[in-house]
Design a protein around this nucleic acid. Structure first.
Length: 444
RNA sequence: CGGAGCGUGGCGCAGCCUGGUAGCGCACUUCGCUGGGGGUGAAGGGGUCGGAGGUUCGAAUCCUCUCGCUCCGACCA
């Protein structure tokens, strides 16, 4: 991609109303534009990252056996009356009245909707277990949206819904998602901590949220340091038994949200030096809630004995758009964003230091085409701007590798490779630079 | 919803208190010099001050209403 053909409206100054690093940086790097309170347009760089994150989530969901569907943003309020949540959910639901004076809801979540789909088609235990997920925009009319897309009113969420015959198999479904979540977040280089949590308006008795500790986190979490040292990829997890053991290993360590925190228990079970507490950003939340929706909505199946029983359900959410901000909160410096390779909008940023130099330009194009051919997404900053401007924009948008090409080093067949993560620069041959980039990217 | 504040070119702000129809930095346009960390010289374009009403000879400035946005608190992926 040629920068001059693309659309990255960067700005030097911080927006007046942005308070946290991710919000400032997302606006300054031209990823998002606010349209209303808590409602944003996603500009090219922003949507690229959002899609990358979405795809990682999608891959891990599929790997865990979840099946993608797409439910509408607008739902009939009748469904919500059936489940009893129409009144319960309150002012956060955005209601829309259509021309026939029917009330629609811009969905804040989809338990009712998916239960409706399930009950229409699934009648037998033979079709279980089933896990359906979708990635769709949600709307929660927060009293006070803030922090950019971290707490928007409109946000992109991945939500999965599991259906099982009984409590035991429902637990397996829950555990599968538990593992999928750990893998998903790890691929984004986030250290997500599963914490036992209140289930809130979704309901149920088994619930964990996945949080990342960061200074801008919104609520206090407490855990045993040992959880951070666990590595979900270390073990081969294929059978239900292996999955259960792995999850139960996680669950054996203390971890709790503010509401669930028990100081005495914390001190009793966790050594002082292993006690960790910090502000957590909640990026995922999973619930197992049995028949909370299936019962009032008559989502029942016939079991092996020919008896009718309500399905056991669970729901599993990931804040996709919030993840974009979370990753930035975790990876940034004074100059800008530092994208993990897996979600970076481009992997390589070629910076041409001297625009009117034919040799420099053609070398840039050559390298750009070569990288693209290798399947490495590259942006070539061919703008007629000063070197300094390109450097600072490059650091701001946080592309992992910068290839700096100028007449001085080109004479010797060299290029400067800067790794954004470390800000280390080295002058090496083009071949070695490309090999190095390849090895780092494809090793992932 | 309770408390606080803001709304002046694309962005960030000054002017408002002590009314006299707008100013700064960045960005933008053209030309030149430049080009290894937001370079530089010259010449330009763009706003009637969120909206409505009122006071006044005269309103960005005073008053009333209204809309939007932000911040602090309770709620939340």
């Amino acid at each position: 991609m040629l920068w001059s053909n693309y659309f990255i409206p960067t700005q030097k100054e911080n927006p007046a109303d942005a308070k946290i690093p991710s919000h400032k940086l997302m606006v300054r790097s031209g990823m998002i534009k606010q349209e209303s309170a808590g409602i944003y347009s996603w500009l090219p760089l922003g949507i690229k990252v959002l899609k990358n994150i979405e795809n990682i989530i999608r891959q891990e969901q599929e790997r865990a056996g979840a099946i993608e569907i797409l439910m509408p943003t607008l739902q009939s309020s009748d469904l919500w009356s059936e489940s009893g949540r129409y009144d319960g959910y309150g002012e956060e639901m955005l209601r829309v009245v259509d021309r026939h004076d029917r009330i629609l809801i811009y969905g804040p979540t989809n338990e009712e909707q998916v239960t409706e789909i399930f009950r229409k088609y699934v009648k037998s235990y033979k079709n279980l277990p089933l896990n359906l997920y979708h990635i769709q925009w949600k709307f929660r009319d927060e009293i006070r949206p803030r922090f950019g897309v971290m707490r928007g009113r409109e946000f992109l969420m991945k939500d999965s819904y599991s259906f099982d015959l009984n409590e035991d198999t429902a637990k397996i479904s829950y555990y599968k998602m538990f593992v999928a979540y750990l893998k998903t977040f790890q691929r984004m280089e986030l250290k997500a901590i599963p914490v036992s949590a209140e289930s809130g308006p979704i309901g149920g008795n088994l619930s964990h949220e996945f949080s990342v500790i960061a200074p801008t986190g919104e609520s206090e979490i407490f855990c045993d340091k040992s959880i951070l040292d666990l590595d979900i990829n270390k073990k081969n997890l294929t059978t239900d038994k292996e999955i259960s053991e792995a999850v139960e290993n996680y669950l054996s360590f203390y971890s709790a949200t503010d509401e669930k925190h028990d100081v005495n228990n914390f001190n009793k079970t966790v050594k002082k030096k292993d006690q960790i507490s910090g502000r957590g950003i909640e990026i995922g939340h999973i619930f197992s809630f049995g028949d909370k929706y299936s019962k009032p909505m008559n989502a029942s199946i016939v079991n092996a004995d020919g008896k009718i029983s309500d399905v056991y359900m669970g729901s599993y959410g990931i804040g996709v758009s919030r993840l974009v901000a979370t990753i930035i909160e975790c990876f940034n410096d004074d100059d800008g964003i530092i994208w993990p390779i897996s979600v970076a909008p481009f992997k390589v940023n070629i910076i041409n230091l001297k625009n009117n130099d034919d040799d420099c330009y053609s070398k840039c194009i050559e390298i750009h085409n070569l990288l693209e051919k290798l399947g490495i997404e590259t942006i070539f900053d061919d703008r007629d701007e000063s070197a300094g401007k390109k450097f600072s924009d490059g650091d701001l948008i946080g592309v992992p590798f910068q290839l700096i090409i100028g007449p001085r080093e080109l004479k010797n067949g060299n290029v400067e490779l800067k790794i954004r993560k470390t800000n280390k620069k080295e002058i090496i041959s083009f071949e070695r630079a490309i090999d190095k980039i390849k090895s780092i990217i494809f090793e992932e």
